[in-house]
Design a protein around this nucleic acid. Structure first.
Lengths: 254, 254
DNA sequence: CGGCCTGTTGATGCTTATCAATTCCTGTGG
DNA sequence: CCACAGGAATTGATAAGCATCAACAGGCCG
């Protein structure tokens, strides 16, 4: 789900090449537009929205927003990947969400940010000011509706993890993550990437690095998956993996 | 936060008495309106919205939506309290959210419900059809904006619990819940209700009944709180309670 | 080729779940 | 008003699961 869009990231190379030509031209060629809040916007409205936006590039590891900042940044991810993560006073971290191309981050109102927003890879953004976007949305119901839809989708994802973190065992959490990485086109023998390091997987699943590693090793031992490299795996027994993920009521709908 | 609105529930008695008089009259007297999505709507628009709504009463324990149902119910809570909860295949339950008067539940699009919606107390609703409300929102930016605001607020709450469930110890989770029950007006000696049973508190915090009970007993032993009855407690040492909750970065902003 | 970061594996202990027994409210009926 | 029944809550004993600490292996880049 999160990661399907990431594959398109390579395709953006050419879009990057073309220097500042017409505003609309950049938008029509935008690789994220089909999934973004501006999808299906009429040409002249798209042009207006483009006037409000600022193209921005984050390098891997760079932080867009710091937890506790008073900021009203809003943005669509064009390429790359962002993570939203909150840290506790004593340094424990929890990844709250991942945002793939076409996804939306930020707030409409200006309030203290409750989490960091950090680039997991080099990331291009189409950035807006929150109030500016809100004003635009008030005049363009299709944008307001798209914003609501994106936010509800994020709410569903967050609640899905709420269930996982509250009730699932380590094995169930890891199996669920792998299914998520595999995406919709899960099949026996299929090869999929680990888009996150073990440490990031641990932060997402509310586990330690060691536990994630052990669970992956056990799936390997049981013949459910093969680990091809540090960053990719193949699924030998999709049915077993889904059975292990078990409690995810959301899986079926993705 | 969740529970401040609940106190107003008693005040609704008179509103209930008045039989069907003018549509707008019912809305203007609605005890939840100040916090609901219809707050600040112009009189004629309010009247239009009222035409789309259906007043409904749920008895305690009654279910509005079943997990897995294909439904598009949307509603504002007028009085009482709803819980959103998801169950795993083997019966473990997790409370995903609580909705107090003025709060909004449901979906705009028709999709499979990912969680149950159940009344924790006798509850009055102002119910809409999702698409009907969406259409209304597309013509009334202030409603679209209010819906987005409510949804973002729910997203913040869900992510707050994501952090709790992923990283916090049992002691931290229970302390955080008690602070939540106390609400904004926390003070030494202040007396507050347990709006949830121990079992419900456990479902919310991702713990067992026994662990919740033990944590409360320990807070009692350490002089941080007193338990006055099964359903109320007083805070002897607010500072200690906040220190124990510790990692909640959200607490400060409520 | 060597250093370093990431990941794996092992040993141990703490936290919390589980199972079981008892006590305490609360509401009902005598 | 008091006694009693039944559920809710508390407390205790034990065990499972995961974190923590520690050592080691493997791959990548300079």
């Amino acid at each position: 789900m999160y990661f399907e869009g990431a594959i398109k990231a390579q395709e953006r190379a050419e879009a990057k090449q073309e220097a500042l030509c017409g505003a609309t031209s950049r938008c029509t060629n935008c690789p994220a537009r089909a999934d973004a809040i501006c999808a299906g916007l009429a040409p002249e409205a798209l042009d207006d929205l483009h006037q409000l936006s600022r193209h921005r590039v984050l390098r891997k590891g760079q932080t867009l927003v710091w937890q506790g900042d008073r900021t009203d940044i809003a943005a669509t991810v064009i390429s790359g990947m962002l993570k939203l993560s909150a840290a506790t006073a004593d340094g424990r971290e929890q990844i709250l969400g991942l945002v793939a191309p076409g996804g939306f981050v930020g707030r409409i109102d200006e309030a203290r940010a409750r989490y960091d927003i950090v680039a997991l890879a080099d990331t291009e953004l189409c950035q807006f000011s929150g109030p500016g976007l809100a004003l635009f949305a008030s005049r363009h119901p299709e944008i307001a509706s798209a914003l609501l839809g994106k936010t509800m989708q994020e709410l569903d994802r967050s609640r899905h993890w709420q269930l996982m973190l509250g009730q699932a065992s380590a094995a169930e959490r890891v199996a669920t993550m792998l299914l998520d990485f595999a995406g919709a086109d899960l099949e026996a023998g299929g090869c999929y990437p680990f888009p996150l390091s073990r440490g990031q997987m641990a932060e997402l699943a509310g586990l330690t690095i060691e536990t994630v590693s052990r669970q992956i090793s056990q799936l390997k031992r049981n013949g459910v998956i093969s680990v091809l490299s540090r960053t990719s795996f193949s699924v030998r027994d999709p049915h077993a993996l889904m059975a292990l993920a078990g409690l995810s009521p959301v899986a079926a709908t993705h």
